[in-house]
Design a protein around this nucleic acid. Sequence first.
DNA 1: CGTCTATATGTGCGCGGGGCATAGACAGCA
DNA 2: TGCTGTCTATGCCCCGCGCACATATAGACG
Lengths: 164, 164
Amino acid sequence: MISDDIVRASSSRAPEAGPAASALALLAHQPGLSIRMLAVGVGLSHAGTVRLVDRLATEGLIERREHSSDGRTRALYLTPTGKIASDEVLASRDEVIAEGLSILKPDELKILCDMAERVLRDRLENLEHSYRICRLCCYDGCTNCPIDAELHERGVERGKSGDG
Amino acid sequence: MISDDIVRASSSRAPEAGPAASALALLAHQPGLSIRMLAVGVGLSHAGTVRLVDRLATEGLIERREHSSDGRTRALYLTPTGKIASDEVLASRDEVIAEGLSILKPDELKILCDMAERVLRDRLENLEHSYRICRLCCYDGCTNCPIDAELHERGVERGKSGDG
DNA sequence: CGTCTATATGTGCGCGGGGCATAGACAGCA
DNA sequence: TGCTGTCTATGCCCCGCGCACATATAGACG
């Protein structure tokens, strides 16, 4: 029960206004995401996500493109500026976490990572949930993502619509 | 870096609209808190906290009383109804955490708690910060609070205004 | 005691974010 | 072709919050 205070310690120093940061980080790893999927990822309603995308597009951070096959769907992509912003968000996030866990020894970090990985695998519900979990992941450093592995084991792949 | 996903996993299932829950939990453990301290604890401005207190008071969850010595300060207390609400918030919080960590073995939990305690002690900045950290603590179960211990070692006690 | 400053609380005003309901565009099917 | 489901976008409105200001009190000083 004390453990959730780590949560507060790092989440209280969130990089910026929550949803925007999540959207940027999510699009950095999953370019071409639809608004619907992004909405699930950032935890907003469709309408709210549309406004969020509007704002980010106005700021020149992301852009809407036509979907290749489906005329309804809009594929969202980061602009170069947006990529920079996303990198900054993730960098500040990493900094906070590294700071917070700086007192732990390397072998303790390893233990913690192992526990975290098992917890994540256990708590993963479905494909949409995976987007929420990974919304602020540092994808560059997450080379062997446990979530991807767990999804793979369940026969679900990202980019398809079947939820488990 | 994967560890902050535990954060998402539990914080994404927050009991209710953030600040209100924190205020209730905070007042459950620290009755007679002033609005200023509550503001720091919940991470809002003074004005926002006043509105929050207004709402909670309108709902009959908390009440303002005169301070014993200082005529300016308002002492905030939970009403019986507010105590019930606070208990529910903390209970749901505990449930989420217990669920999330249910895959870990008891000895692993012990290791995790030990690490969390050291991280908390290391990251604690001052008295005001302690209110933010502990805002959603389950005080009934937090018998030997590491934050209190750390504050004590630094010669700071809660209830006074000197920040370390 | 009068005054000045610092502190704490409460309020008018406006802004921005987000949800609900709805409209428009498109895919799939009979 | 028409019907239905899905995806996106918009009108409208509410809520929460911060800024600036007003009010009340404590403490210090002449």
